[in-house]
Design a protein around this nucleic acid. Structure first.
Lengths: 161, 161
DNA sequence: TGAGATAGTATGATTCCCATATAATACGGC
DNA sequence: GCCGTATTATATGGGAATCATACTATCTCA
């Protein structure tokens, strides 16, 4: 009886530990992002947008503004800077269904410069992963993906609610 | 022989999957942070600093500037805004060894407002954690903590190197 | 005691953010 | 097909943020 309660208590602590660790990781990755951005003369929001463009593929400024949580006019400035720095191109597809539409595309040939920034963190993650079995890595990757989904939902709730 | 190679290949893919998931999570949490900040009228950097003050305990402006990667003068502006908003207090310890020193302390009585913002994400994480055993949760928390340490090291390397 | 380092903040030029306005295009009802 | 409205991307201007520099007060150490 007491052991059952102890078990429940232990479990709550475990869940709490996971959430705290996640929050600490969140802060640390934010700081790491800022250092990344500083290395290529990009503001926080600029860096976020470049990352989104790189990973979510070519997309329109309005869609990017929505997902990044930025004012459309602010995003124009962000894109101006990214384009001036040669990180992206704005394309106007001639045979697009909507002739107002602009497509923002990352210049892949410059991605090597970005990956170089990641190399330190990358090497450390490789080493860290060595300590886990295949099954454990799969478990971790799945947890991370599900957490991302949860974060996405929470973000939407906050931005719309 | 071939199966050994396949196993190694599979493993590389697993590691890659973990890193990609982590990167996606990084972006998503950045966006979530921006929404949090927007809800309490705080800029990205302001929110980061408030979070650091809350979690790393009372600390000096210079230490905060270092860890947050901000210019000292910029941090003065950040602290001004946080203080004006009533989120922190600047204290001048009378019997401190260094009389120049200022201590920045979070006003804990306002933390409830912050936790309310987290409630959505918090509830989702609770639910997500239900799918894991105690041992799995421990594994995950440990992985997250070690990743935070790795991020910390990578941040230091970038900011000093 | 004095030279130099350090903590925190003020100052001013530059840059950024964002509410609003504008131009071009799309869409829905009639 | 035509007109009112919505939407996309960007320009404009006023207010705010950023950061190099300077400044004051204090500490350290010789």
């Amino acid at each position: 009886m007491s052991s059952v309660q102890d078990g429940a208590r232990w479990r709550r602590q475990q869940i709490r530990a996971v959430k705290e660790a996640l929050r600490d990781l969140n802060i640390q990755l934010s700081l790491l992002n800022r250092q990344f951005g500083a290395r290529v003369e990009l503001k926080d929001a600029d860096w976020d947008c470049l990352d989104l463009i790189n990973r979510q593929g070519p997309l329109s400024p309005s869609a990017l503004a929505r997902v990044a949580g930025l004012h459309p006019a602010t995003l124009t400035g962000v894109l101006d800077r990214l384009q001036r720095g040669g990180w992206i191109v704005r394309e106007r597809d001639p045979d697009a269904t909507d002739r107002r539409a602009v497509t923002v595309r990352a210049r892949r040939e410059r991605n090597a410069e970005l990956y170089r920034l990641f190399s330190g963190m990358n090497a450390q993650m490789d080493q860290l992963c060595e300590d886990y079995t295949d099954a454990e890595l799969e478990l971790i990757a799945d947890f991370l993906r599900r957490t991302t989904t949860a974060g996405n939902t929470a973000t939407d709730e906050l931005s719309s609610g």
